[in-house]
Design a protein around this nucleic acid. Sequence first.
DNA 1: TCTGGGGTCCTAGGACCC
DNA 2: TCTGGGGTCCTAGGACCC
Length: 425
Amino acid sequence: MYVYFANHPIYSKFDIYKPVFYNYIGGNMDIKQRQILHIDVNNAFLSWTAIDRLANGEKLDIRNIEAVIGGDETKRSGIVLAKSMKAKRKGVCTGETLYQARLKCPNLQVFKGEYKNYRKHSNDLYKILLEYTDKIERYSIDECFLDMTDYLGNDTLINKAYEIKDRIKNELGFTVNVGVAHNKLLAKMASDFTKPDKVHTLFEEEIPSKMWTLPVSELFMLGRKTLPKLYNMRIRTIGDIAKQDRDLMIKKFGKHGLMMWEYSNGIDNSEVHYQKEKPKGIGNSVTLPMDIGSKEKLEEVLLTLTEQVTYRLRKYNMCANVVNVQLRTKDFKDSSHQKKLLYATSNTKEIYRVAKELLNEMYKKGTFIRLVGVRVDNLVDKDEVQLSLFNDESNKKQEKLDEVVDKLKDKYGYTSITRARKTSF
DNA sequence: TCTGGGGTCCTAGGACCC
DNA sequence: TCTGGGGTCCTAGGACCC
């Protein structure tokens, strides 16, 4: 399928492409413009925590004070996960340390997040959205893309956006921003304009006035590493990228350069992925309460993480072809090693064996480790894995053991059973 | 009491093969 | 003997997102 952005500013000099997109599908020239909404919950974790507190009889609405949802400083994960508008006005940023946040905002109040409750609020939101279209991509716990193209009836996209926004506010008690556009990129950029509780459009003809004027740092997928490079090229605004030579951007930044150029020109033909996709990799990592300088201690952590990861892997009924171990030293040097397996497996013992090998490869005696991570990659469905391997007696036995452990965890809770490393392995 | 945890995708270099 | 070049697979590291 080829989609031409005919009314896009860069084509505007060609009058023959008037104000519509041409979707070339299966040989039929068919005039169709995609109708996309992006829903973004305002200060999601903080809003949701505020609602839960009010529901529990607390009087204070933490949305109205200088507050953040933060990690646990005693566990060395003290960063800002979400902020109230008042905290934002004091300059508090997501991702910075609570220490830094308090310097900017001395009266800052810090609250803990409850991830389990967030899932529920996210599902409530999803249920409302499903009444409008079934083409919904759950981009993250607090963001969705909606493809409304075949679901508008006699209504307009903008009306739907306001209706959805207001219904969520009235029925669920939190606010969202809605971006209205003809592709995902522009809808996402639009929902990021002024907040909270707003609907913004970003149609092609609005790109110069609404998007090109923004600083480059606002462009989706343009991160902190690319920023200084663009600055050196005297690029300041998104419009500056749009006006760069396309081939020069590719030459300087490769695929990423092409993407930046296309995004800055509002070009994005990606689909709304509304079908649930299987994970490509599964990982767990932990920042240790104290730096560890002993391999034996690290192996214990590695086992716990491996058990978590393989448990999740088996829940998906998948097997892994690659095992990866990540370490972060106390001075924040990251490293990772991975290994391809001879055959795909979900077996805890086997994956732990490889993870231990990788740790041994990487770990230099005397270094202190802050973070350990285990992940599995190149996942395949279990029933695609060679049947012969399951018929091997020792594999069968191991698989049985995993099954028993999983069932206990399902029944009595995840922490009910933990393998004592020394005896089991 | 300084810096999370879960992901996806890309790149570059080396090994190996023809 | 003065050394190609294309392709694939594997690995380490990095960029970016929420």
